[in-house]
Design a protein around this nucleic acid. Structure first.
Lengths: 151, 151
DNA sequence: ATTGGTGCAAAGGATTTGCAGTCTA
DNA sequence: TAGACTGCAAATCCTTTGCACCAAT
């Protein structure tokens, strides 16, 4: 007897605009073919707004038996980032964090603990938009407020 | 016969506050014992305000014969950053840049070319300082304006 | 059948580490 | 001579790649 729990197929995730939809639809919306491991990875990332490193994703994906290999996790996260499903947060030279919150916002980074925390968009704004050098166009603006644990 | 050109000893560098002093004094000011390879590395970094990766520093230090090993370059850059002599700029997961300009300023980062450019402090300001989470103190605020080459 | 996706292990690149040799006070 | 600094090579960590296998159109 073979029972395959296609849980990911039915589980719902909440997107930025508070829409409730299943991971398969979410992936399709972003032009990503919804394979089993991609659904699984998306499921984890979108369970809640959070910041996970590739390693952490790998760990969680395979918590109950192997679902995806290391290469697939890296490929998938890279793909998600490229398609705009998640955002790469670069604050630590040793690893990239993937942020499932893609609405505009910035970050606190605790250099002692490695904890990454969102700063609401409306809490932190620039006085004026930057004047770009000629020949380039804006990609994104990242503000990182580095903090350390008070003595 | 032995001739040792102690050039670094006499070469002057310009610091943030436009002061002209030799590298040895600069290192001493920052509580860093001025050894030959540290002077050499400082000399390169402070020849002009610039952004160099550890690799680039290694390359330049050893342009005319070996002066410092890879390990020493990494150790030294880490030490300089820790002592506040230079600033680490983290914009690319694959390498850290060391910025010899430590006056407050931010950065443009061209994701296509990898070019890192200063944004003058007065050109980019926050509307309000961020409200920190409890139990932490401010370390630094980094604003990175990512740009791409216009099509 | 063709295309795209996955898995594995090996390769890659940046950085760190261990330890012996050197220098300097 | 002690303590700090350096050099070399090996080790480590994160990430990417090459290639064979599998799945879906």
């Amino acid at each position: 007897m073979l029972v395959i729990a296609e849980k990911a197929e039915t589980e719902k995730v909440k997107t930025q605009d508070q829409q409730l939809l299943n991971v398969g639809e979410l992936l399709t919306q972003y032009c990503i073919a919804p394979t089993q491991q991609r659904r699984q990875i998306a499921q984890i990332l979108f369970a809640q707004p959070q910041h996970l490193s590739a390693d952490q994703v790998l760990e969680r994906v395979n918590q109950n038996g192997t679902v995806a290999s290391k290469a697939t996790v890296y490929n998938t996260l890279g793909l998600f980032a490229q398609k705009g499903l998640v955002r790469e947060v670069i604050v630590d030279p040793s690893k990239v964090f993937y942020d499932s919150n893609i609405s505009p916002h910035h970050h606190f980074y605790n250099v002692d603990t490695g904890l990454l925390q969102d700063i609401e968009h409306q809490e932190l704004n620039l006085q004026d938009p930057p004047t770009l050098p000629v020949g380039v166009e804006l990609d994104s603006i990242d503000i990182i407020v580095r903090v350390r644990t008070a003595e």
